[in-house]
Design a protein around this nucleic acid. Structure first.
Length: 383
RNA sequence: GCGUCGGUGGCGGAGUGGUCAAUCGCACUUGGCUGUAAACCAAGCGACUUCGGUCUUCGCAGGUUCGAAUCCUGCCCGGCGCACCA
């Protein structure tokens, strides 16, 4: 049952602490704990906010998996209580608190997505409302006494908000206390999180050592750029989602800046770093195709990934017709505009006319239309 | 509560009675060049149109005016200051 931890070789420790990792605080403690050969208690906390997970989210999840694979005791903490409050980190406006019902439905979605990376059944799942629900005011005051107003105000986003006159609600200061208290209850050796969680995790470290005398180290994972080089985020429309179809996923990776191929290989695939180096010696396009293949394979399996690759080559390199092209039947008297509009290929008739003027609408073979780069439709005309 | 400033298109941010479907930047779309990369060049970016125009937009609701995003009234929302420390 209690199998030996097999991550004690320096090489494995180095990989655990470097790949996809932004910071390890404090480093010496992390190395000492990992080298000791003991099974560590590690946790990763997430507020189920209902977001669609993208590759950026996969970095900490994959790191968590690495800890599971190395034989450590891993806890997946659901911020069932904290999600109702909202994390101010990285936010320039106040977050709207969620209801418990929303949290529950979000969690379901989250688990489905995270399940693509992690086998959640192998992990202990906890919910922080278990202990945060019942905390009294006295306990909170006590927790708060471990921090100063200055520490809170120094945080970037608060500083920024003050300068820009955007409100900071008082409860937003409480968030780090709450997630910090999670550490106290769970009493762990290590906490994982995105780099935006550094402050919160450090607060947990302070509290845990004050209350439990166990010193944990924290490990933050890197923030990876999206397809256009900016931070991967829904708002920038540059994210590759875990739920993207194989073809889509492959295509999106192909549209990423060449400069990011290495970063993506390192952080989004399981390939050995030596192999990564080999791949990078290829022509940039070849390297990226390999990257797209590997990522697609991870989420859709080898077969789908191959199909996606072949389809991509056929459609875009040769200018052919995609294998999964949408087919509609239409009366031969129906104007093209109406069909396109109905099928969502264009947003309005005006847009249709505009695209048409620009030469963006082409009939690449009888009945097969291509709008712009990646909108296709096959129409079967009926008499 | 009082005072004060402000709410404009995905975002930032002009405009302060007509020439405003609304300058500009970013984002986005499309064409060119390509490797569906980047960079670069060009065009577009409310809807409908018989391409002449027409219609709906500038927090919400009314009003003034030949005419309002622009003026007035009321309402809603937000910032800041004051009210405690002084």
């Amino acid at each position: 049952m209690n199998k030996d931890v097999d991550s004690t070789s320096s090489l494995q420790v180095a990989e655990l602490l470097s790949r996809g990792v932004e910071k390890v605080i404090p480093r010496e403690l992390a190395e000492k704990k990992l080298r000791s050969g003991e099974k560590l208690r590690v946790y990763f906390g997430v507020d189920p906010t209902g977001a669609k997970l993208h590759l950026g989210h996969s970095v900490p999840l994959r790191k968590l998996k690495a800890f599971v694979d190395a034989g450590h005791e891993v806890i997946f903490l659901v911020g069932s209580f904290t999600a109702m409050i909202g994390d101010p980190s990285g936010r320039d406006i106040m977050r709207i608190p969620l209801t418990r019902e929303e949290v529950e439905s979000n969690l379901k979605t989250y688990k489905e997505q995270a399940g693509k990376i992690l086998d959640l059944s192998k992990i202990e799942v906890r919910y922080n409302h278990e202990w945060l629900d019942t905390l009294g005011f006295k306990d909170i005051v006590d927790l708060a006494s471990n921090f100063t107003a200055q520490q809170m105000l120094q945080r970037d986003m608060f500083d920024k908000r003050i300068k820009e006159g955007i409100p900071i609600a008082l409860h937003e200061f409480l968030y780090p206390l709450m997630v910090g208290y999670d550490s106290v209850v769970l009493d762990v050796d290590c906490e994982l999180g995105g780099s935006d969680q550094e402050f919160n995790m450090l607060a947990g470290r302070t509290l845990q050592s004050a209350y439990k005398k166990r010193d944990k180290f924290i490990l933050t994972t890197k923030l990876i750029e999206g397809t256009d080089g900016r931070k991967m985020s829904k708002t920038y429309n540059n994210a590759i989602y875990l739920e993207d179809e194989a073809g889509d996923m492959y295509g999106k990776v192909m549209s990423v800046n060449d400069d990011l191929t290495k970063t993506y290989l390192e952080n989004f695939t399981d390939l050995d770093m030596n192999e990564v180096e080999e791949i990078l010696k290829l022509h940039p396009k070849e390297a990226k195709m390999r990257l797209a293949f590997e990522i697609t394979k991870l989420y859709h399996g080898e077969e789908k990934a191959k199909e996606a690759q072949e389809n991509f080559a056929e459609t875009f390199s040769k200018g052919g017709i995609p294998a999964d092209i949408k087919i509609v039947k239409a009366d031969k008297d129906t104007p093209l505009v109406d069909i396109f509009l109905e099928q969502g290929l264009v947003a309005s008739k005006t847009e249709f006319n505009r695209l048409n003027d620009e030469g963006a609408i082409k009939e690449i073979e009888s009945g097969v239309y291509r709008v712009g780069k990646h909108r296709f439709l096959r129409i079967e005309w009926q008499d």
